[in-house]
């Protein structure tokens, strides 16, 4: 095998192998970027659903429960219990409910437990408090 690789005969096969490996790495990176974007989209969705629920019902706990439920649906096991924060903010003449979702995203976690590096993803949704909907 080594003899074939060392000779000129094997050069094209070596080049093909290198090209294939490069393609696999490229594809893996594409998949990872796609996963990162979908995670970002999902946490925005979780924040919106939680904020909307709290706004409609006038209950922060209902909003948090909804956000947790959507998080379990879309990103099971990825959103920590302290990753969802829902609170009321009052300014001069208006009150809002704010839902914040934070996820610690680990790169290549599907290939290696714990992943390689990572970053914190954050999403926020602001809705009027329930009485502003009337």
């Amino acid at each position: 095998m080594l003899g074939v690789i060392r000779s000129r005969k094997g050069s094209i096969f070596v080049e093909t192998a290198v090209a294939c490996i490069t393609l696999v790495v490229f594809l893996t990176c594409c998949v990872e970027i796609f996963t990162l974007i979908t995670t970002e989209m999902y946490i925005s969705k979780i924040a919106r659903e939680g904020g909307r629920e709290a706004s409609l019902t006038g209950s922060e706990s209902a909003g948090a429960a909804k956000a947790r439920d959507v998080a379990n649906q879309y990103l099971p096991g990825k959103v920590q219990s302290d990753g969802i924060r829902i609170y009321k903010a009052v300014d001069e003449n208006k009150s809002h409910v704010i839902c914040e979702v934070t996820v610690d995203y680990r790169f290549f976690s599907s290939l290696r437990s714990g992943g390689i590096g990572g970053r914190s993803l954050h999403a926020q949704a602001v809705y009027p408090w329930w009485d502003e909907n009337m």
Binding site: E53, L56, T57, S59, S61, A62, A65, K66, D69, V70, N72, Q73
Partner: peptide, 20 residues
């Protein structure tokens, strides 16, 4: 497959209170 909690179990009170 996917699973979502039925709306009226999340909301406080009964399903009749649904305002959406």
């Amino acid at each position: 497959t996917s699973e979502a909690t039925l709306e009226h179990y999340i909301r406080e009170g009964s399903k009749d209170q649904y305002v959406g």
